[in-house]
Write a protein that binds this DNA or RNA. Structure first.
Length: 478
RNA sequence: CGGGACAUGGCUCAGCUUGGUAGAGCGCUUCGCUUGGGACGAAGAGGUCGCAGGUUCAAAUCCUGCUGUCCCGACCA
């Protein structure tokens, strides 16, 4: 299916792979459920990594690396953890031509092995992060949004008190909010997961939930309060101020290459991908209009000059001076790849001292832009595109968030083409989750950290008003 | 894991019903002509038809199994 058709028919599944393949972000691998991240897609990940890595270090964490293989017995030490992850673990049983005496799982996450080390190191390291790959054997996979192997960052911290660890959980979910809002241009809701959606082994899980352009919600990152569950399982202890040996309070938090999927499904149009400038591999593409068999030196020199001036400012710029490819094809290619700005310069422009600029986000084309002041204009435009994308996504979310008082009202929200979030009050009765799942194939995405409903808003399932009720966001999700 | 669809040059796909020497468009190579939004003409290269079996004188085509992708469920980040 073409991207154009996929957008019109709101065929999100096919749209995701169409965009990812066409924009050369990824390709299918010979291994089921795995993907190859191509250079253009990996460059986006590197930009995300660079930005987030600084945030993680600025909040007092150090990077380390733990091994890919985890003894299967480690996983079994925490009852809920093994129950949650065992079904999706790949297990190494043979190596060196022999059956292993101890089986190893390929890490689905690293809480267990990190705790094993924490119990030895607790006096020296308490706040670690690692950038790694993990593997979770999935039944149904989708490029970037759910692949069997994916890249992520996982932070693991130890604290003396529960108050401290709870504070860390909230602090890091706000770091993710900063990343999504200010760099990926995706508005998110922060909230706590219900018990059924909690991380296996956590006391509580907070997530950031983004709304995709097809109206489905996407969990884009999580931060867990692990309590003392893993500390007890691995006997990770420290000596407190009263000289008593006590278990530490822990957190873990992560975001993955799913974020690239969030960008794809959060920013696109009928042409293809639209990248926020702050994470775009190329923020500007310069296309000189070249004439075959003629002297293009002047045009090329000017194009190279622009390239240097923009690069010197720290911008990421691509100069496409391939002669054998017509500009029309180049225009199309960079539009599909979501490059925020296109700068076109030809001989005619040169004579008039101007250029042509094309904005990918609103697909506007301005000719006869004076070269004087151009560089400043480009810098300003990139900022406008960045904030414009966020505003557009926020508007979209506002339009697609409905307040509901009862189950019947959900019909109009979740059964319509637009989907989106439903905001409601809930008394905690798990019956609601069953109804949502069976009747609407939807779920409680989170209990938002910043509630918006008045306290007298009735519970969606009981119809009663109570101070015990909690506000929830309901949506269909990926 | 259940139901459905699909798998044919680099890409998009036709051909399969009714078995008989593999096709088109795009892309690629060369030449000519063009050149500010996917130009045109001519010549040419390129495919063990997803994999493995089976039926047949003969299989892209019929049958069986497997693998992968997509869709709908279940499950999950």
């Amino acid at each position: 299916m073409s991207i154009d058709n996929a957008v019109k028919e709101n065929n999100a599944e096919s749209l995701l792979s169409d965009i990812a393949i066409t924009a050369e972000l990824a390709d299918y691998s010979p291994v089921k459920g795995c993907m190859v991240i191509r250079p253009y897609g990996y460059a986006i990940w590197e930009n995300i990594q660079r930005i987030l890595d600084k945030m993680i270090k600025d909040t007092g964490h150090e990077n380390a690396y733990f091994p890919l293989l985890v003894p299967e017995s480690f996983l079994q030490k925490e009852a809920e953890h093994v129950e949650g992850f065992a079904p999706e673990c790949a297990v190494v049983t043979h190596a060196g031509g022999k059956e292993l005496s101890e089986r190893y799982v390929i890490r689905p996450t690293s809480e267990t092995i990190i705790n094993h080390m924490f119990s030895k190191w607790i006096n020296s390291y308490r706040k670690l992060n690692q950038w790694a790959n993990v593997m979770r054997w999935e039944m149904r996979t989708r490029l970037f949004l759910r692949t069997s192997e994916f890249l992520w960052q996982e932070g693991h911290t130890c604290h003396a008190t529960h108050e401290e660890s709870k504070e860390e959980v909230i602090k890091m979910i706000h770091v993710y909010e900063d990343l999504l809002h200010n760099y990926l241009a995706l508005p998110i809701h922060i909230g706590e997961k219900t018990e059924s959606e909690r991380f296996a082994g956590a006391v509580s899980t907070f997530s950031i939930e983004a709304l995709m352009r097809d109206g489905k919600a996407l969990q884009a990152g999580t931060s867990h309060d692990l309590g003392q569950n893993f500390a007890k399982a691995f006997d990770t202890t420290f000596t407190d101020s009263e000289n008593k040996l006590v278990h530490v309070w822990q957190t873990s938090w992560g975001v993955s290459t799913r974020l690239i999927g969030a960008v794809i499904m959060g920013h696109h149009d009928e042409v293809g991908l639209i990248l926020p400038p702050k994470i775009a591999p190329y923020q500007v593409v310069i296309i000189p209009i070249l004439k075959k068999n003629l002297d293009n030196t002047k045009v090329l020199n000017q194009a190279k000059l622009f390239h240097k001036e923009l690069t010197d400012l720290g911008l990421r710029v691509k100069l496409d001076d391939r002669e054998q490819i017509s500009q029309g094809i180049k225009f199309n290619e960079y539009e599909q790849k979501g490059v925020p700005l296109r700068l076109v310069i030809g001989e005619r422009d040169l004579e008039n001292g101007c250029v042509e600029l094309h904005r990918r986000d609103i697909r506007s084309k301005e000719k006869d832009i004076q070269i004087a002041g151009l560089i400043e204009r480009i810098v300003r435009l990139l900022d406008e595109i960045q904030s414009g994308l966020f505003t557009r996504a926020l508007e979209y979310r506002k339009e697609n968030t409905k307040i509901v008082k009862n189950i019947a009202e959900l019909d109009s929200v979740l059964d319509s083409k637009s989907l989106g979030f439903a905001r409601a009050m809930w008394n905690g009765d798990v019956e609601l989750e069953r109804i949502l799942k069976e009747k609407f194939s939807a779920s409680i995405r989170c209990m938002p950290l910043r509630p918006e409903l008045p306290s007298d808003h009735p519970c969606i399932i009981s119809g009663t008003v109570s101070p015990q009720n909690r506000e929830i966001l309901i949506a269909k999700a990926y």
